[in-house]
């Protein structure tokens, strides 16, 4: 999909520049745009390294495991197919804890492990069951406590207090997460074949 979008963006730019007479600016944009990307990565690199460093300490100290224990009882209600302590629910909790701390590199493999656990008992292996949909919907919502990259970007572009928007981010995240969960529950229907018990 991105292949098409990318090509369309460039072609639209050209056509638009023909009509607006901004061909010189477009020509310049090719060079500055590519350079800007490098500047951006270098400008945010320090902050990204520092943060993943701190999160590694949190993870090694067992903070992920603690969060996992906190999430476990909550998740039991969202995934009624799995009993507390089951390996599927454990994998789900680990994934959520990693997402919460912003450990993206760890969250994805844990999430795939959770999907594999859920697939084991799935009656139709090519059709998503209710738990799988719920899990993926929660993963498409952001539950990251501190969106580091966004903060680093804001700092790079001169925000006075890059993280002053955190309360607003938390409010928007939690409301959209709740809406996602409610919609997933409402749309899942009552068909027995999509649940395990």
């Amino acid at each position: 999909m991105l292949n098409v979008i990318w090509a369309v963006m460039i072609l639209i730019s050209f056509v638009c520049a023909v009509f607006t007479g901004r061909m010189p600016q477009l020509s310049e944009a090719v060079m500055t745009g590519a350079g800007n990307a490098v500047e951006l990565v270098i400008g945010t690199l320090g902050m990204m390294c520092a943060w993943t460093g701190f999160m590694k300490i949190a993870d090694a100290g067992g903070l992920t495991a603690v969060l996992c224990k906190v999430f476990h009882p909550l998740l039991k209600h969202l995934f009624p197919d799995y009993q507390a302590g089951s390996s599927a629910l454990k994998a789900i909790s680990m994934n959520m804890a990693a997402n919460f701390l912003g450990l993206g590199n760890a969250a994805t493999p844990l999430g795939i492990a959770a999907m594999k656990e859920m697939q084991k008992e799935n009656p139709h292996p090519s059709v998503a069951n209710n738990s799988m949909v719920m899990f993926v919907v929660i993963n498409t919502a952001s539950i990251q406590l501190i969106p580091t990259f966004m903060g680093a970007l804001r700092a790079q572009y001169g925000a006075q207090f890059p993280f002053d928007i955190l309360p607003a981010v938390w409010l928007a995240s939690i409301v959209s997460l709740i809406v996602g969960i409610i919609v997933a529950k409402l749309l899942q229907g009552r068909k027995k074949e999509h649940r395990l018990r």
Partner: peptide, 18 residues
């Protein structure tokens, strides 16, 4: 990534809810 990792073809209501 997640549905692909276990070969799920029918994602049902995942996309509308997300």
């Amino acid at each position: 990534v997640y549905f692909g990792s276990v070969g799920i073809k029918k994602t049902r209501h995942a996309i509308p809810a997300a």
